[in-house]
Design a protein around this nucleic acid. Sequence first.
DNA 1: GCCGTTTTCGGCCCGACTGTTTTCAGTCG
Length: 577
Amino acid sequence: MKNQELAKIFNDMARFLEAEGVAFKPYAYERAALSLEALNKDVAEIYRDGGTKALLQIPGVGKAIADHIEEYLKTGKIKHYEDYKKKFPLKLDELVKVEGMGVKKAKILYQKLGIKDLKDLEKAAKGHKIAPLFGFGEKTEKNILQGLEFLKRDKGRFLLGQILPTARIIEQRLKGLKEVEQISIAGSVRRRKETIGDVDILVVSKKPAEVMDFFVKMDGVEKIWGKGGTKASIRMKEGFDIDLRVVPKKSYGSALQYFTGNKEHNIITRKIAIEKGLKLSEYGIFRGKKIIVGKTEEEVYKAIGLPYIEPELRENEGEIEAALNNQLPKIVGYKDIKGDLHCHTSFEAKSHGRNSMEEMAKAAMNMGYEYIGISDHTKFLRIESGLDEKQLLKQHEAIKKINDKFKNQSINFKVLHGCESNILDDGSIDIKDKVLEKLDYVIAGVHSNMKMEKKEMTQRIIRAMQNPNVDIISHPTGRLIGRRDEYQMDFDKILEVARKTGTILEINSSPDRLDLRDLYIRRAKNQGVKMIIDTDSHQKEQMGQIEYGIAQARRGWAEKEDIINTNSVEKLLEYFH
DNA sequence: GCCGTTTTCGGCCCGACTGTTTTCAGTCG
């Protein structure tokens, strides 16, 4: 939990330093923040066990940042940070979320107009105060207003990836109490929605008062909204709320069903209960005043004549009808994935992927995978140290050697060679076909000129799919949740061509992408288009994010057969061939 | 402020695009 708090502070520090025009340091702070976010161990624990010496082992953390962390853990504050906040009393982190706004513009607007937050910004833009400023103009002002509109749509929601780790830590803490008999995360987190309003946690206990006392006094709590006999609400320092409910054991299943939702799903299940002369509530299933069942979700569903419905499906998107007809999909499982084919490495570059190919391969083995695919950027993305033809061929040889080494050590694991090439404006690929042919597979993605007209963009992607060497389209719609809309394109046409060409569409697991999104996954599945769940990892710690992609696939009703990296390496290569 | 097999100082991602300019700063990826 401290990890996330510190990550936010270091990201803020990066913004402050950037605003001052300081070179290089912002990057250092950002890297430390990224590293802390990806850490699967509590930084407070690392410090407690090994002091600042142990902190220095965290990538991107050096002397100065280790001292900052120590100061924060000891005092709850970092003086350096507090000083900057005084110097720039504006909400940079929130202002730079407006597309086209960076720290420099925010700083000028603060100095000239006293703009401190989004509210001030909106007022100034609407009052036509921004356009006349030197260096700004009509178009910039219009863009700011558009950016603000976009932000408003997703207000107050957090990414699943920001919430789930913390929710799990709290779940574990509560689980550790002897007063807690049963516990589960409920609500939209349990349904693995891509964005989350707040967290619901459900507990069975005979001593609710003790549990709630512990809950509101936990580390990381900023504010207590309320605390009653069986319910408490808190606000965490990270900015989101958690509701805790304590229920009796006999009602745990029905309560879990009720608090998992969603609302529409619940309304329908209750209606079905009524039709059967029953009453379903959070307390159980009743005939008259007599409780029939309520201990588990399975028996609750069974009592109203339905098979168990996975939480990810409970959106009233047809799952009830499917359940009634015994036609629920057997959605892909969290352990069905056999390899990750979208992984970036540090090959021939210093700053792109964080880890070497072998490090990534080992991380993949630790995930329990049978194979990994290395897919670094290609030359058009110079900024990401994209590889050119010559370097790709060199990488090909290097991967051969790694595979030979594994073979000699009797390690049953395969490294595949791919790349994430770029789809240029005309739909051509930035790497020559005769080199693409040599690779095990080719990913192609749009990384530039994302605001094309619908017709042009559709044609651009279609042409890429028609290249016989292209196997996978990465992050097919280009959206960044809450920040950037999808490209304008005709998705049905894309699906049609994908089916004809056998092109695989990626489900990118990065928590701010989750691209394809659930509804598109379902459409792809219905069209018979194959998909692949990848992480797009730029460092080995991100490989665990695969679960977000799997969750998204499940929400899209995808089954094992729809996802090609549930296959053995032999079948996979056959498919690419 | 971090990092390291060209290492304890001197590098650190940098080109395209946009909107503002009249030769460029800021933002994005």
